[in-house]
Design a protein around this nucleic acid. Sequence first.
DNA 1: CATCTCAGTGCAAACGTTTGCAGAATAGGA
DNA 2: TCCTATTCTGCAAACGTTTGCACTGAGATG
Lengths: 331, 331
Amino acid sequence: MVVTIRDVAHVAGVSISTVSRALASPDKVSASTRLLVEETARSMGYRANRAARGLVTGRTSSIGLVVPDLENPFFGSICKGVQARARAAGYSVFIADTDEDPSLEDEAVRNLTKQVDGVIICSARSTDAALQQAAQDGPLVLVNRALPGIPSITFDNGGGARAVMRHLIALGHRRIAYVAGPVTSWSNRERTLALQTFAAEADHVDLIELGNFPPFFSGGMQAADLAVASGATAIVAFNDLVALGVIERLRQRGLQVPADISVTGFDNVPVSALVWPNLTTVDFPRIQMGRASVDALLDTVLARTSPRPAIQEIPVELVVRQSTAPPAQPS
Amino acid sequence: MVVTIRDVAHVAGVSISTVSRALASPDKVSASTRLLVEETARSMGYRANRAARGLVTGRTSSIGLVVPDLENPFFGSICKGVQARARAAGYSVFIADTDEDPSLEDEAVRNLTKQVDGVIICSARSTDAALQQAAQDGPLVLVNRALPGIPSITFDNGGGARAVMRHLIALGHRRIAYVAGPVTSWSNRERTLALQTFAAEADHVDLIELGNFPPFFSGGMQAADLAVASGATAIVAFNDLVALGVIERLRQRGLQVPADISVTGFDNVPVSALVWPNLTTVDFPRIQMGRASVDALLDTVLARTSPRPAIQEIPVELVVRQSTAPPAQPS
DNA sequence: CATCTCAGTGCAAACGTTTGCAGAATAGGA
DNA sequence: TCCTATTCTGCAAACGTTTGCACTGAGATG
């Protein structure tokens, strides 16, 4: 029924070792044999059984990808990048959605570890200890979270935050509110720190920290009134969804963006370009990050001597759109 | 280094067959042995090698999922549903993103077929013939596309379209434009047909068909002016993104939604609830569809006598929000 | 006590590959 | 012509499981 290497060998009139070698390491057989075997295999529709190969080589040619929420376009993009690069390198991708649940995440990692060559964890929600443990059990790469000793790929949150501040200050804003994300969020800490530092270094700039708020539309709705009460002329939101929530609440209160107040986000999710006003935000090249994580993983898996730093930072870019403008009454 | 069934057997003082049986079919060994083996295995951190098991059983305990674009939240949700249900059934999920490319899709399916127990193809872009062929090579389930002879899960596009028409007519609209999606889209054909039929059966209702347009924001931008020129008081867009494009273009032209003109979409993507005005649209329960597809696949894989119909239709629901209202000048 | 049944266990083959080792064939050099 | 080096090929052992078959011993039945 299903054609094995044995069948190919029989038809081609050679041994199974020769077939194996002709297909896997072409330089180990004569050119004529190789051609014969290749042609026979093709005509018979032979495809090597991965399980059998994995059994003897100890390699599965597949990697595991763990994400908190597949429905979130942020992670969808990363998956896309991972998948594309893995395919190009001859690897398949096992996917696991953890539903933002740390214990499910740990379990998924444990499950995967034994059946793949390496694991990529995206925005890990688990504890440092659990991750360190997981790193012991097999090749592991962290995406959007950095942990010493484990290859990690992160976005340059600090650079993004600085770019936003620079932009707002250049427009003339001097009183700027930051709607913070979850306390547990590593990205949030990075952004907060960078904003504080930049504000402290600039002249006559006040940074008002609000929050923490949930990183969704609803979080923005909650935060908007506080931001207005603070007298800020510009609001930096933790991410695009929060920014949209802020804008919606401002709209409800009759405030115009950007005429009365400027709003920015982070992430550059697709929707941020579709709404009115378009969002000024920081673009995070997520597909590129997915690709980079596969490269980092394969570095470890293939034990290439890795010249890459353990923690790699992907540059980000400010995208100026229509949600930012000079303040109504310049101070 | 890695603990095998042999190690467990040695420590527990039984044969490897007994370990295998104690773990896989507990009723075949005595209770005391089972406990002993289970405890030993746990303490040693034993996890069965999937490749080895697959080699002898011919089962991989994994399924393949092929989607056109992981970045599209529509597919992200389906993935989530698939992944969750598969996990619950003890299956892992291989994922393949085809970048909307039919030939990549065919290749992905071919690649997967040999290394998984079954494949789910989401919104297949490939030809009927190629799909029929793929169905010969192994268990296959189609999602969001129906093909006779292959188990298919689809949304009730017709029902959704009728619900939209009923709603608009109830509001008093009599001249309704449909901004059609791609000609190649199966969903588009289903929706068009249902709209036509319903309009024909209703009294004094004109359906103006526009397009075809690309199923994105830009498609809506293109279509809006035609819709206005047609004198329609309500616009039914192929999907939410198109609807958003339509609204944006209307806004640019100074037309208010829904005061001047009503707009509806299909899909109920998350963003449709976040924008202003919120979109009246048809909710497609995508996670549920993902789950249903796994069930259908496992029916075939496990050769359960399947009482399910070959083509299963998932009910959809009209979500009335703020983008629809009675027409300005009732006709 | 002899016989039978049956639950529990172990032996060993099989799954489809890869790969170290050894043998065969070929070519080259003396 | 013989020897050696080199290239190519085949044999067979592994990889870690599952599972058909045979065996053992205990309990039941006569």
